[in-house]
Design a binder for these strands. Structure first.
Lengths: 142, 142
DNA sequence: TTTACTGCAAATCCTTTGCAGTCTG
DNA sequence: CAGACTGCAAAGGATTTGCAGTAAA
């Protein structure tokens, strides 16, 4: 189950290498199309399907993680942090912060009253980062 | 901003009426296609786009709520409960339970260290209900 | 009568796949 | 060389939209 590269590809083609490179330099949440555009702007001509395949591989290997969606497209972010946690995505600039899982024992207990056995959960937090938050005036529409 | 019907339509056509009726009788999470199939099985011939439009209206009015996705399709459930809460969806049979929001003050605090102002969050819990849980043998894949 | 609602087909959007050619190991 | 990887075009699946006809109010 181990891949020869940290980002999940078996062979390191020029594209896969450049893609991983660009991704790790982004720091922001991105969609596949964002990434493809970014690559194009840096002079890398890669087909959209190639980027999709690379992203799929990086997601499987844990090099990146899915952090919600934006207008129907999957959002990803490079994530080097280990262990179970969630992400906070700034709807202003796309920057991402890590967040502890809020589903601690007491939260689980409050839920298990229902007789359900929880097998998976999704927690995505959206907000505004320091730089994007309008001081004094809260607010925020989707 | 108030609609003449609890499920968000301006006029109560036969379809909209039947759709709301079927929805409220379901009790399970459903996709638009599920709902369309259900209607068809009950002898109601309604176009898929009509069902999409009805579901959109019911969602806007709060008659139903979105509770995650299943295989890429949006999942909804009739929800009469008021106030902020989340849902627990059984991946076995589709039954839904309500759950308190785990994002209490302490959880928020753990997150606000990041400097982010949280404006929205999504919490979806998946699991197995009493009837679907294999007693003794835990487990659960996505 | 007014105009929301309906059905159908066409159009969008995101994502996946089939294939033949290219390149890594 | 074997088989991953690539690009392109086509296919898929979910959801939306344009339009003319139907039916609530």
């Amino acid at each position: 189950m181990d891949h020869p590269t940290p980002y999940g590809s078996e062979r390191v083609s020029r594209q896969r290498h450049r893609i991983a490179e660009v991704v790790s330099g982004l720091g922001l949440a991105f969609t596949v199309v964002d990434l493809a555009r970014e690559l194009r702007e840096r002079g890398e001509r890669s087909g959209l399907s190639t980027v999709y395949r690379a992203v799929t591989a990086m997601d499987r290997s844990g090099y990146i993680e899915r952090v919600g969606s934006r207008q129907g497209s999957a959002l990803y972010v490079r994530c080097a942090r280990h262990g179970h946690h969630h992400h906070l995505v700034c709807t202003g600039c796309g920057s991402v912060a890590h967040a502890e899982c809020p589903l601690d024992e007491s939260a689980m207990r409050g839920v298990s009253d229902t007789g359900f056995t929880i097998t998976a959960h999704e927690v995505v937090l959206y907000g505004l980062c320091d730089g994007c938050a309008p001081r004094g005036a809260p607010g925020g529409r989707d």
